[in-house]
Computed example of a mutant assay.
Amino acid sequence: MLPYHLAANYPIYRAKAFKLHGVHSPFIFDLYHHVIQHDGHFAAYDLVENLREDLLQDNAKLEVTDFGAGPKAGNKHTRFVKDIVSASAKPAKYGQLLFRLVNYFQPNTIFDLGTSLGITTSYIASARKEGKVYTFEGCPNIAHVATQNFKKLGLENVQLINGNLDTTLPAQVAQVQQLDFAFFDGNHRYEPTMRYFNLCLTKHHERSVFVVDDLYWSAEMKRAWQEIKKHPQVLQTVDLFYVGLVFFRTSQPKENFTLYF
């Protein structure tokens, strides 16, 4: 059963969503056909999903510090590894979409705002081993397990940055010349989401790709997504309901698409 905000917004999304025949932008048409709706298989899918299955059987306990949204933020509590991956890891459909996006655009500098146990990060890093993936995790114990998972998959292009995102993100943004790809999954409240987005925006360029997670997770996230779409530097967006794609291509008109996925 979908949470309230997702359930309330899904019928609206479905009523608006186009399939391929309704897309008139050549750039978005090509993206939708070759990336979003691509149904082929990559070997990396199996490697990451095997890791997920192992974690879903892992009964180890971790003391977790919660830096995310909600009343438990900042609290410490004990959780099973299998419960963390079950609750926090993106479903395979969306991890594999991120893989295809990175594989298609071939970014060099990638930010993943929200490592958790590293499932989604592994998809991203597997798609562009020549690039550098900076992934951010607040909880040191979760970060430790994620680092082990990257080693299991032989992903040497990942640098995990541990600490509160409010501190670690500004420091890392300052150290990169430009940001080619960013996945925003570090907080599900309006103010931090917009702050992180605007901070990363200072290093974007014409071909950058930003992906925003959980667009309709809450009223605050829906508000953030609406504001992102209206931002003067944002020129194209694609609403896939659970995730939104953001582009900055001045060669294309400013348009917002809602596409079925």
Rank of each mutant, 00 (worst) to 15 (best):
Y45S: 09
Y45L: 08
D46W: 00
L47T: 13
V48M: 07
V48G: 00
V48Q: 02
E49A: 01
E49P: 06
N50W: 05
L51Y: 04
L51Q: 12
R52V: 11
D54W: 03
D54L: 11
L55A: 04
L55Q: 06
L55E: 03
Q57N: 15
N59K: 13
A60N: 14
K61W: 09
L62V: 09
V64N: 09
V64D: 02
T65E: 15
T65K: 15
T65W: 09
T65F: 12
F67Y: 15
F67V: 10
F67N: 07
G70C: 08
G70E: 04
G74F: 07
G74C: 07
N75D: 13
K76L: 12
K76T: 15
H77W: 09
H77K: 10
T78S: 15
T78D: 12
T78W: 11
T78G: 05
R79M: 14
F80P: 00
F80L: 15
D83W: 00
D83C: 03
V85S: 12
S86R: 14
A87H: 13
S88E: 12
A89E: 09
K90W: 05
K90F: 06
A92C: 06
A92V: 14
A92F: 13
K93A: 15
Y94E: 13
Q96D: 07
F99K: 04
F99P: 04
R100K: 13
R100P: 10
R100N: 10
N103M: 08
Y104Q: 14
Y104K: 14
Y104T: 15
N108P: 03
T109K: 10
T109M: 11
F111R: 00
D112H: 07
L113I: 12
L113F: 06
L117M: 11
G118M: 00
I119D: 02
I124E: 01
A125M: 05
A125L: 10
A125N: 07
R128H: 10
R128P: 01
K129A: 08
K129W: 08
G131I: 03
G131K: 08
K132M: 13
K132Y: 03
V133Q: 02
Y134V: 01
Y134T: 00
Y134L: 15
T135R: 06
T135H: 09
T135E: 07
F136S: 03
E137M: 00
G138F: 04
C139H: 01
P140A: 06
N141Y: 02
H144R: 14
V145H: 05
N149H: 13
L153F: 07
L155C: 02
L155H: 05
E156H: 11
V158P: 02
Q159F: 02
L160V: 07
L160F: 04
L160H: 08
I161W: 06
N164S: 08
N164Y: 07
N164K: 10
N164L: 04
L165D: 06
D166Q: 15
D166R: 15
D166L: 14
L169T: 03
L169K: 06
A171M: 11
A171C: 02
Q172S: 14
V173N: 07
Q178M: 09
L179K: 00
D180H: 08
F181E: 02
A182R: 00
F183P: 01
F183Y: 14
F184Q: 00
D185G: 04
G186K: 03
H188W: 08
H188L: 10
R189V: 01
R189L: 15
Y190A: 06
